[in-house]
C-alpha cells in the first residue's frame, strides 16, 4: 500500500526512555512546531493510530505491553523508532534489562534525543511517502 497519507495519527509508547525523547516529542505540540498543521497528531488510543512511536531500548518489563499495544493498532500500521535507544544504537542497548530497541521499524528517527525539527521533518516526509 502506498504510504502517502493526508494525515498521520501517532500513539506514543515509552519502553525505557530517559524522557529526553518525550520532552522533544512534546515540544512538537508547542506553537513553534504545531505538528497538527501537517495533519500529524498524537492520539490517546492505539485503536486510533496509524503508527506507534516507541522510545527507549525496550526494557524487559515493557516488552509484553509493547506487543499488546502494537497488536491493538489497526492495519495498515507502521512502527517508528524515536531516538537512538529505540533505534538500537543508544547507550543502554547492552544493559541487562534492555532488549536493544525495537525490531524492524518502518521509520527510524535517530538522535539522542533527536531535535524537534528533525522529528517533525522525518514524520512529515514519511507521511508524504518520501521517508
Amino acid at each position: 500500500m502506498s504510504r502517502a497519507m493526508k494525515s498521520l495519527q501517532l500513539r506514543h509508547l515509552d519502553a525505557g526512555s530517559c524522557n529526553g525523547c518525550e520532552q522533544e516529542l512534546t515540544a512538537l505540540t508547542s506553537r513553534y512546531y504545531d505538528l497538527q498543521q501537517y495533519g500529524i497528531d498524537l492520539v490517546a488510543s492505539p485503536r486510533h493510530a496509524d503508527a506507534l512511536v516507541v522510545t527507549g531500548p525496550v526494557t524487559d518489563t515493557m516488552k509484553k505491553p509493547l506487543e499488546k499495544v502494537w497488536q491493538a493498532v489497526p492495519e495498515s500500521k507502521w512502527l517508528v523508532a524515536l531516538g537512538d535507544c529505540a533505534a538500537g544504537c543508544g547507550v543502554f542497548q547492552e544493559a541487562y534489562a534492555s532488549h536493544g530497541g525495537v525490531a524492524k521499524p518502518d521509520l527510524v528517527i535517530a538522535g539522542c534525543p533527536p531535535r524537534p525539527q528533525d522529528i517533525l521533518d522525518k514524520l512529515n516526509q514519511f507521511r508524504l511517502g518520501q521517508g
Partner: peptide, 21 residues
C-alpha cells in the same frame, strides 16, 4: 517498568566510558 539495568551496565566501565551513560 523503565528499569534498564543502568547500575549493572555501569559496572566494569573505564573512567572515560562513564560520563555519556
Amino acid at each position: 517498568q523503565n528499569h534498564r539495568g543502568v547500575e549493572g551496565h555501569l559496572e566494569g566501565r573505564r573512567l572515560a566510558e562513564v560520563a555519556p551513560l
